[in-house]
Design a binder for these strands. Structure first.
Lengths: 187, 187
DNA sequence: TGGTAAACGGAACATGGTTCCGTATGTTGG
DNA sequence: CCAACATACGGAACCATGTTCCGTTTACCA
């Protein structure tokens, strides 16, 4: 038995305060919000942030974990609820897009080669690639989607298409991802 | 007649040296290469860079101007050389993608909301949107492409799909843009 | 209640963009 | 050829941000 020493009360309190502060900062300044801003909002020193969340990726993952889980869990449900596997795929991707475009700077962070965001990248992949793969495989088996496009590549393309969403009303990421999914269709 | 005072010889020389140094730095470190690196390569002080190219965008535009012009001029030629307008569009977009994926960080810069890159963004749009629009219009008129997708939006989507190219061999921007263009096709 | 380890705060450091001004140099009229 | 002037140069200094480190504070437990 490894005795699990419970964290101190102030530490637990600060962790929650930081999550709230970060979530608020992310909304107004995007996921690149300056560390000092987040610390100030939470009323703590910057050292406290780094103690709880060693990298920015850890903080981002913690803030959005619930929403990513929800998106992942929606996959199988859509597969049974939709008329066709291709429709299920399209609807699931819409869900993913809706999540991404409301998080300023998140798609950029997911794509940046920056080692800081490695954890973030890995978490999204671990959680979403298998789901996407299931949907994609179902659609391919049903002969509705051309073979040879992996779940990873598709997700990455969708993520890319969501970059800069909201900063320009002439660009509609939903429309463009829909076009991409249409291109997947076996004619 | 506004007398045009010719620039000093050293200034002209430095401008060319800087262009060469920047081009080299962009190849190895991407278009975000530190200003000090570029200055060092060129053997000048950082002040000299800012005097010749007030923003990074000016430098990037100057370095890639020829290639962008070439891409723009290829549009009309492709339209007459190709079997169908849709094929011309597809080939032109391939050309654009080939240009982008060899310029590390350029697609990212084009999309960043950063005001520093405003000039860059504007230059690409000025030069390429009209060309793309011509191709798109021809394909639409021929009934080969669904209406309602503007040249700006298409170019932006293609640019986005090229972000991070080369950093990950599981992701193929050419393939993804081809899928997007396939999705444009009127069935 | 006192001792200890956990946690905290924020100063200090590293990096990279940007500005500014004293100095050096090309250019031109005499 | 020279002097005087405007142009251009160099790089120190400044600012913004991420990151580290350590002296101080505080929660917990005996």
């Amino acid at each position: 038995m490894t005795a699990v020493p419970r964290k101190r009360a102030d530490a637990r309190r600060n962790e929650q305060t930081l999550l709230d502060a970060a979530a608020a900062a992310f909304v107004t300044s995007g996921v690149d919000a300056p560390v000092r801003d987040i610390a100030f909002r939470a009323g703590v020193g910057v050292g406290t942030i780094y103690r709880h969340f060693p990298t920015r990726a850890d903080l981002i993952v913690a803030v959005y974990r619930h929403q990513v889980e929800a998106c992942a869990e929606a996959g199988p449900a859509l597969l049974t609820d939709s008329a066709t596997p291709h429709e299920a795929l399209a609807r699931w991707i819409d869900l993913f897009v809706d999540f991404l475009i409301t998080k300023h700077g998140l798609p950029e962070a997911l794509r940046s080669g920056d080692a800081t965001f490695e954890t973030l990248h890995a978490y999204f992949l671990d959680r979403l690639v298998p789901v996407c793969d299931t949907l994609l495989a179902a659609a391919t088996t049903a002969g509705q989607v051309i073979p040879g496009v992996g779940a990873y590549q598709l997700l990455r393309a969708v993520g890319n298409l969501c970059i800069g969403a909201g900063s320009d009303d002439r660009y509609d990421p939903r429309r463009m991802t829909a076009l991409l999914v249409a291109g997947l269709r076996a004619q």
